Measured scan of single mutants.
Amino acid sequence: SEFQINEQVLASWSDSRFYPAKVTAVNKDGTYTVKFYDGVVQTVKHIHVKA
């Protein structure tokens, strides 16, 4: 599913667990740039983002 900029989502971290994050960019290659609550910004594949 498509997510929008500033949408609150759950994004997987390197430990494969999902954490609350905010979408900061929707990228043309189908990835999302997300910002976790601790301030870390990461680009993740769409399969690693869920509502």
Rank of each mutant, 00 (worst) to 15 (best):
A25N: 09
S16P: 05
N6Q: 07
R17Q: 11
E2R: 14
K28Y: 08
V40L: 12
Q8P: 09
P20Q: 08
Y32E: 00
S12P: 08
A51T: 08
L10N: 03
V40N: 13
F18Q: 02
Y37D: 11
V41L: 08
L10Y: 14
V26N: 07
T43Q: 08
V23P: 00
Q4S: 11
G39D: 04
K45Q: 12
Y19N: 03
H46K: 15
K22S: 11
E7S: 08
R17T: 13
V40F: 12
D15T: 03
G39N: 07
F36D: 00
A51F: 08
I5K: 04
S16V: 07
A11G: 02
N6W: 09
F3V: 05
V44E: 01
W13A: 13
L10T: 04
D38Y: 07
V9N: 05
D15S: 07
L10V: 06
F3D: 00
F18V: 05
A51R: 11
G39W: 05
D29F: 02
H48K: 10
I47E: 14
H48N: 14
D15Y: 05
G39E: 03
Q42N: 06
V34M: 00
Y32V: 09
I47W: 11
N6K: 05
A11N: 02
V26W: 05
K35V: 12
S12T: 11
S16R: 08
D15F: 01
Y19F: 11
T33N: 08
V23R: 00
R17D: 13
D15N: 09
R17E: 15
V40T: 15
V49F: 05
K22A: 08
Q8F: 13
H46Q: 09
P20M: 06
G39P: 04
D15E: 10
G30F: 06
S14L: 12
A21I: 03
F18L: 08
D29P: 01
Y19C: 12
S16G: 15
I47D: 15
F3E: 03
D38R: 03
Y19S: 06
V44Y: 03
G30E: 03
V44H: 02
N27R: 02
V26K: 08
G30I: 00
S1Q: 12
T31F: 04
L10H: 05
S1G: 12
A11F: 05
L10Q: 07
D29A: 00
N27F: 08
Q42Y: 09
I47T: 15
K35F: 07
G39R: 04
S14I: 12
V41G: 03
G39M: 04
Q42M: 14
A21Q: 00
F36S: 02
T43F: 07
K28V: 10
Q4L: 08
I5A: 05
D38M: 07
D29N: 08
L10A: 02
A25D: 05
V26Q: 06
F36A: 00
A51N: 09
I5W: 05
S12R: 15
F18A: 00
V44K: 04
D29R: 00
A11T: 04
V41N: 06
R17M: 14
S12H: 10
V26C: 09
S1L: 11
N6Y: 08
Y32P: 00
P20C: 08
A11Q: 02
E7H: 04
Y37A: 12
K45L: 14
Y37T: 09
Q4R: 11
V41H: 07
S14G: 15
F18D: 02
F3M: 03
K45R: 10
S1W: 07
V44P: 01
V41D: 03
T31A: 03
D15H: 08
V26P: 00
H46F: 11
W13Q: 09
T24M: 15
G39H: 04
